[in-house]
Amino acid sequence: MKRHERGLSWWLLLAFLAVVVAVSIFPFAFALSTSLRPRAELFSFPPTWFPKTWAWENFVTVWTAVPLLRYVLNSVVVSVLATLLNMAFAIPAGYALARLNFPGKRLFRQALLVTQMFSPVVLLIGLFRFMNQVHLLDNNASLVITYAALSLAFSVWFLAGYFESIPIEIEEAAMMDGCTRVGALVRVVLPMSKPALVASGVFAFIWAWNEFMIALTFISTPDNRTLPLGIYSFLGQYSVEWNYLMAAALIAIVPVLILFLLIEKNLVKGLTAGAVK
């Protein structure tokens, strides 16, 4: 770590950081305060920062107001499988970009960027028709496949960048020792790339965990809903159950936050080589 003298600039930077953190966290603090209010208190005027009665029971009721546990489980399964599928495809592709020359390499890179230029909203019709043709509508497998595909571009770039930062000599030594290309990848490169694997895996996971529009279009049976769909059901036609909505939203954030905290060090390390090279 660098040792700046703790001069004015040091304090200014920290003060600035404090302001940004405060503004970023403010909506979630107020979401928490909202989630702990009884319904009657949501609309008192003028609005207050803290509930008068703390309705802790909201966090219990919300699990029965809608089948939240079911939605959480669906989301876990979909997100984990989408992440694994994403990784299984991104690792060889990223490695090929980093280490191998092959015809169409440039085109492949550009095509990946192109996939990011279409908002999912624009792709809905085509996605729906495709899933219809392969009989996967209203099946969570359709979400697994779609999420894995849509987060692939990022994972591939990211891993490619990291793989490039690994000295090639190590692999060459391994291959002279009789390892195949795949053997070198699996036994040498991957173990050295833990931070990047973790970071890109988390990106894929979060992408899947938070996606809404595609799930809305594919899924119809209530039991197949993912968490974002479940949360949306608190936005009713005539009224919004803000307290339950906020409680469910906060519940949805917790697993992601824990994941982030677990990998925070790897995240920066992974980004370091992955994004900068």
Binding site: V20, V21, S24, I25, P27, F28, F30, A31, I206, W209, N210, E211, F212, P228, I231, Y232, L235, L245, M246, A249, A252, I253, V256, L257, F260, L261, E264
Partner: peptide, 17 residues
């Protein structure tokens, strides 16, 4: 950790809040 929170929540949740 705190700075990460808006990232951990989906765009939709951020917007709804």
């Amino acid at each position: 950790a705190l700075l990460i929170v808006p990232w951990a929540a989906s765009l939709m949740i951020n917007a709804i809040i």
